[in-house]
Design a protein around this nucleic acid. Structure first.
Length: 494
RNA sequence: CGGGAUGUGGCGCAGCCUGGCUAGCGCACUUGCAUGGGGUGCAAGGGGUCGUGGGUUCAAAUCCCGCCAUCCCGACCA
């Protein structure tokens, strides 16, 4: 049995780790920095896969699989790309009992190996667009790791597309940003800020990078998904060309986009409380747990029978059919341990609804129901419970999103323009939050803020045509200059 | 790679300063009985190269020297 969970206010990262370990979502592996995902955690990933895969396929992409090993020379073909990733690559130099002639990089991302195939597969404009997605594992040798948020190996989905024109590629990158935003909000109940990355934060090898940024409960930002417009950078390196309808050879325009198991960490840090995990119903493997309370041998049989009948009624009710993933309401019965302990355990593992059923309830023809996010006990007549469950699962999904959104709004601040607000900005950013501020787009000003406050430009919010929002006339918060200022979101980040 | 700390059953720790009884405690685990409306009670039981190599000593978890590993803080990052 588990220890009590460290309060959020006391030590946020300890709190987070407690929840992951005690809800049995994951564990540390013998290899430093790697993570073992336990069944509880993997079922959440399966839900994410199911739902997101459906959304990705709707955009026209198809799933495929590429090798985990990438010849070192492939990585070196795109200059920025290798520069960005080389420091964090794991490389195989020895295999089959001898030193390899060419080293093999364990993929940190698959742009290069996939492009080597794209170059063969694409001949004509009729082959375009080519849209490939793969669910895979990648390895990045980070210096410091954290369960789910940054592990040496992680699971993700990476999409890679080729298009005939720059406009199509840009549209694709934008479309995927929206897909991710909707997915994060509708399924994870995690509100996100969509935006564009600054030059220094963009993906190594991209023309531009879009991202969604979420706010955790300690008010730090978490990059939850990215979508890159790669332009023709990789096409040039791999000579991925096609014969267009005008008879000319042209380079393909590409995108890539991905989200990872980091989403699970973000979801935990967004919703959980000091009692443990809080799962949005759309991610829960069990929606409802019925805890029978058997006061004595005489009522034991009655209570167990009533529990089974209730479980059946909930699973079969018509309202349940409209719930996520077409799986209906998933009901479980737990009569294995002491009731008191069970209550804590199901709170720790995040089951959205708990129903307590004992002799006293049976006399009244009712049961006690508790929603994990609210925690208030209510006595509901047995026959009304199936409908109550269906209604509350839907409401809980919505409420979690609204609560997280309200938290983010309450911690997002518009800074006064120019240098005037800078000293105030520096003290407030220590307390955390998102800060909207004008920036002159110079690297120096970006670096200055990072150095002095540890905050980085998370993204540049976009207007309706996906361009950074100009703030002409407003002074950059660092240098005060009014040229080329755009709106940015600054925050300390994971 | 810089700054700080720690290595003792599965987990968390005490013992070390001042060397000496059979290396101890809490949780977890096993068995039995009882219990069951918010972290059950009692009883019995299993599990240890005290990180590692050397040295001092009649005697080392404890003192000395080397090595190794891990954690936290900084640089890296989805």
């Amino acid at each position: 049995m588990a220890e009590k969970i460290t309060p959020r206010s006391q030590d946020f990262s300890q709190w987070y780790q407690d929840i992951v370990l005690q809800a049995r979502l994951a564990d540390y592996s013998p290899v430093k920095g790697c993570m073992v995902i336990r069944p509880n955690g993997y079922s959440i990933w399966e839900r994410i896969q199911q739902d997101l895969d459906r959304r990705i396929k709707k955009t026209g992409a198809r799933n495929a699989y590429f090798p985990v090993f990438i010849p070192e020379s492939f990585l070196k073909k795109e200059a920025e790309h290798v520069e960005g990733f080389a420091p964090q690559c794991a490389v195989v130099t020895y295999a089959g009992a001898k030193d390899l002639e060419e080293k093999l990089v364990v993929r940190p991302t698959s742009e290069t190996i996939i492009n080597s195939m794209f170059a063969k597969w694409i001949q004509s404009y009729r082959d375009l667009p080519l849209m490939i997605n793969q669910w895979a594992n990648v390895v990045r040798w980070e210096m410091r790791t954290r369960l789910f948020l940054r592990t040496t190996e992680f699971l993700w989905q990476e999409g890679h597309t080729c298009h005939a024109t720059a406009e199509e590629a840009e549209a694709e990158a934008r479309q995927m940003l929206t897909v991710y935003q909707q997915f994060a909000e509708e399924v994870l109940a995690m509100p996100v800020f969509p935006g564009m990355k600054s030059e220094s934060e963009k993906f190594a090898g991209a023309l531009r990078t879009f991202s969604i940024e979420a706010m955790m409960q300690d008010k730090k930002a978490l990059q939850a998904g990215t979508s890159h417009n790669l332009s023709t950078n990789f096409a040039q390196a791999f000579e991925t060309k096609f014969l267009d309808s005008d008879g000319k050879q042209k380079l393909v325009h590409q995108t890539s986009w991905g989200v990872s198991t980091r989403l699970i960490g973000g979801m935990i840090m967004t919703h959980s409380d000091d009692k443990g995990l809080v799962l949005p119903p759309r991610l829960a493997a069990t929606h409802v747990v019925i805890v029978p309370i058997m006061a004595n041998a005489a009522t034991r049989v009655q209570v167990l029978e009533a529990s089974d009948r209730l479980a059946g009624a909930i699973a079969d009710c018509s309202e349940a059919q409209s719930l996520p993933y077409d799986v209906g309401v998933l009901v479980d019965k737990d009569d294995t341990k002491q009731p008191g302990w069970k209550f804590f355990e199901h709170e720790m593992t995040g089951t959205p609804i708990r129903i307590e059923l004992g002799p006293r309830d049976l006399e009244k023809g009712a049961a006690l129901v508790v929603r994990r996010d609210i925690g208030k006990k209510e006595s509901i007549p047995l026959e009304a419970i199936p409908a109550w469950v269906a209604k509350n699962l839907a409401e809980m999904q919505k409420d979690l999103l609204e609560k997280a959104r309200a938290f983010r709004e309450a911690n997002t601040f518009e800074l006064p323009e120019g240098r005037a607000g800078y000293s105030e900005f520096k003290s407030r950013i220590e307390a955390g939050g998102f800060f909207l501020a004008p920036w002159c787009q110079s690297k120096d000003c970006e670096a200055t803020v990072k150095e002095e406050t540890k905050a980085t430009i998370r993204c540049l919010p976009l207007d309706s045509s996906y361009q950074p929002i100009p703030m002409n006339g407003k002074g950059c918060m660092v240098c005060g200059g009014t040229q080329n200022t755009v709106r940015t979101v600054f925050a300390r980040a994971y």
